[in-house]
């Protein structure tokens, strides 16, 4: 018996001629590897070696005016938010939502992602580049 329909057609999966899903898979792996390194360093410094309560003065002393910590946290914030929301997106498309739901949810994820990134950069600026003199 001839069978000309592809598995995707039989399963009623939309036939998209786009590399977007593959690109999402790939960037998720790449950011994941970077985040593993960042998050490991973050957990060691702020949870294992903290030795007492973390407060403004301690964070300020550690990272104030440091270009290295700025680069670290800049990449950390952007990649973290991207990886998190890209993961949420892959959960969403796993449940095969309608085209309009897909568009709306994607817009929502972009909105929260950009808002969180902007807020994160303001926080980073407040801890690294402000000219506040901490009471040391």
């Amino acid at each position: 018996m001839e069978n000309n329909t592809s598995t995707a057609e039989k399963a009623d999966i939309p036939q998209e001629k786009t590399i977007a899903p593959t690109l999402n898979w790939f960037t998720q792996r790449i950011t994941g590897v970077f985040l593993a390194g960042f998050l490991f360093a973050h957990v060691v410094v702020l949870h294992f070696l903290k030795n007492g309560e973390i407060n403004f003065d301690r964070v300020f002393q550690r990272i104030h005016n440091s270009p290295l910590w700025f680069a670290f946290y800049l990449a950390f914030i952007i990649m973290g938010i991207y990886h998190g929301l890209n993961g949420v997106w892959s959960v969403i498309i796993d449940y095969n939502p309608s085209e309009s739901a897909r568009k709306g949810l994607l817009a929502l994820l972009w909105f929260f992602g950009i808002a969180a990134a902007i807020m994160g950069l303001f926080v980073l600026n407040g801890l690294i580049f402000t000219q506040i003199n901490p009471k040391l």
Binding site: G120, V123, G126, I132
Partner: peptide, 19 residues
């Protein structure tokens, strides 16, 4: 990560608020 950024955003109201 969203909760984390919201907690740390206290720094925008000054060092005492952050601590």
């Amino acid at each position: 990560i969203f909760a984390h950024i919201i907690v740390l955003s206290a720094v925008l109201s000054g060092p005492e608020s952050f601590t």
